[in-house]
Amino acid sequence: MKKIFTIIAGCLLLNANAFALETKAAEEDLTTKNSFFEIKLGYGIGGTAPLPIPAEIRKINGFKPLFNFSVQALYNIGLSERWGILTGVRLERKGMTTEATVKNYGMSIMDDEGGVVSGRWTGDVTMSSDIMQLTIPVSASLNCSEKWCVHAGMYLGYAVKHEFNGEVCNGYLREGDPTGAKIEIDEKPQTFDFSEDMRNIQLGATAGCVFQFHKRFGAFADLNWGVNNIFVSDFETISFNLYPIYATLGVSYAFK
């Protein structure tokens, strides 16, 4: 975690340096040449995952990403011929479904009467995480060549919609802790829903590149790494943190 913050701080410093450069470069009027508006359409691959996978997870039985589109409208503020600040707004979805076999895994399941029983689950679990986020990325950008441009920075996201739910089956729940009442659940699944316990604000690190295969069209790849848990800090049912880590691939169009 500390490392990630160091990286972000580094990126910010990079930005500050870029500002310093700008003062010199401003007179040369090269900046306008490097300032442009761009839109990006992308598709995310990745997952919302614990790092490392905790010992409670014994086996991953399946993984399915949802339709993780992203739409970005960005503006590159040219600071020099090569350096700039890339910022804007992004609407994106980060969703996936995972099936796993777990042992002694923190869980709260709903019973048939709508009550909630919390404890430790051993058995099969299917988890779906789906976050729709409005994100403001701020990166330092660098034109490496005519065709390549890279950027690195951070993002702040606000979840306009967040869901985390799923079901458990073929196992048992120990109510409260491992010494509590043993509630067996057969192949008929019981559901859980932690949507209410999710964070609205998500902070993350971002890095990526664009390959400009045409004057205006480009192909891009971004990595967006969430650095805070998707759940609020007082949520204790799941005993480890989950981070959204998604790579986005897509096309960009620059108004140059």
């Binding site: 790092l51 490392p52 996978i53 014994r58 086996k59 002694n104 491992p178």
Partner: peptide
Amino acid sequence: LSSCIQDEPLNAEAD
């Protein structure tokens, strides 16, 4: 790599 399945934890139940 960092997401590899770890060794099975010891049993927590005492029944």
